[in-house]
Write a protein that binds this DNA or RNA. Structure first.
Lengths: 220, 220
DNA sequence: CGCGGAGTTGATGATCTTCAAACATGGTGG
DNA sequence: CCACCATGTTTGAAGATCATCAACTCCGCG
């Protein structure tokens, strides 16, 4: 049996602003694992689309508590701002290649009243929808439900691969779900012990969802 | 000394879509305290602007856990959807008067490429920004920080009244902050005991922020 | 191989929730 | 106009979940 994994074939680029993107693309850029792409409160200059790799965007509290807002995977666009400052910090989770385009050229396209405006509304709306369902998760779900929801979200975004390869570590997952890394680890162990989930071979980053139906039932 | 309170003078209507709204307004409508304005998964027909009163929008989990997404106050618009279903339920917290306009007429305005598109992007972006900072609150702040943040948010939205009159009860606040009503009550008691906050007269819904600076320091 | 980051697991503890009871508030009708 | 009642709020005690602290193991990489 052929095993699909989620790294090998580069996924088709499908961001809502793809048309704008490809027309206005400036250049490709590479970020090393862990490096910052832009910082919170910086002035936005570019909009980014991921060619390969993965990115986390997050906010920090003064004492260092971190809330990861979103993970951005291959094909995703991020970094767009209407306002004059970024609302997040963005970092490459692994070595990441992106396409850059100038923010101003996107804004211009919107001003010129083309299809750009509608695409942009859709883009922002999708971010909003994600944030809304994430608020429900953060405000009201248990740790087991959160971790399950995370797995199902990744599964869907990676198009249900046989083996899911997670680019992020347990701390990233924890900071996305409003938990600690230990709690994430324990939840994964429970799901594994219940047979809903299998770690692939030796790696704790490669996992296989054995029973998506049962997982969906856990995620309230 | 003259005491400003936040109910008396009807605030100027200032939603981002106000221009569209006033042009296309259909009619005024009244909702009784506690009544549903629209339900999650319903097809959106109208966009609403609050003339008087207050509205909560929320999502429910199957077992009844509730996450209130936002409170909408006088002048605020809500209920706009790009998609074909509402993503929330909306209920009147107190007796509420709204202006209705047809959703389709807004969409039309956007399609026609007027100023509508830009206003709409701004509107959706502001909702997104609110959701993003609320994710940080829900994922990473303590109960005392959450309640403090709530008070400061309301204070600002009501334009720093001397006496803040909250339309919502403790359970609503709790479901907004991802807490229980008891925890909210305890946090308010702490803030009162520390002298940062005063209950006005007998009512637990009328309160005065005595030391906004100290409150801002608590809200990390 | 061995080193260091990452992950798991266990023990303990803090915060928040749950359960419970008492009290306050504001609207209603006698 | 005031007593009454439903609803809302506070406070306390006990319990659950998740966080913290700690030790150990695993894995990937040089």
């Amino acid at each position: 049996m052929l095993v699909r994994i989620n790294t090998a074939p580069r996924m088709p680029i499908d961001g809502q602003l793809a048309a704008l993107a490809s027309e206005r693309m400036l250049s490709e850029f590479r970020y090393r694992r862990g490096s910052e792409i832009f910082g919170e409160r910086e002035e936005p200059e570019y909009v980014y689309q991921i060619v390969s790799g993965a990115v986390r965007t997050y906010k920090l509290l003064p004492d260092g508590r971190r809330q990861i807002n979103a993970f951005h995977l291959v094909g995703d666009m991020f970094g767009f701002e209407n306002e004059t400052t970024h609302r997040f910090t963005a970092e490459a989770i692994v070595e990441t290649h992106v396409h850059l385009m100038r923010r101003t050229s996107i804004l211009e396209a919107v001003r010129n009243g083309g299809a750009g405006a509608k695409d942009l509304i859709k883009f922002v709306t999708q971010n909003l929808q994600h944030a809304e369902s994430h608020m429900l998760l953060l405000g009201r779900k248990t740790s087991l439900e959160r971790v399950t929801a995370f797995l199902l979200e990744m599964d869907e975004r990676l198009q249900h691969p046989d083996v899911m390869i997670l680019p992020m570590n347990r701390r990233d997952i924890a900071d996305y779900l409003g938990l600690t890394l230990e709690t994430v680890s324990r939840a994964l162990s429970i799901l594994r012990d219940e047979g809903l989930l299998r770690f692939d071979g030796n790696s704790q980053r490669r996992l296989e969802l054995v029973d998506r139906g049962a997982l969906a039932k856990i995620d309230a």
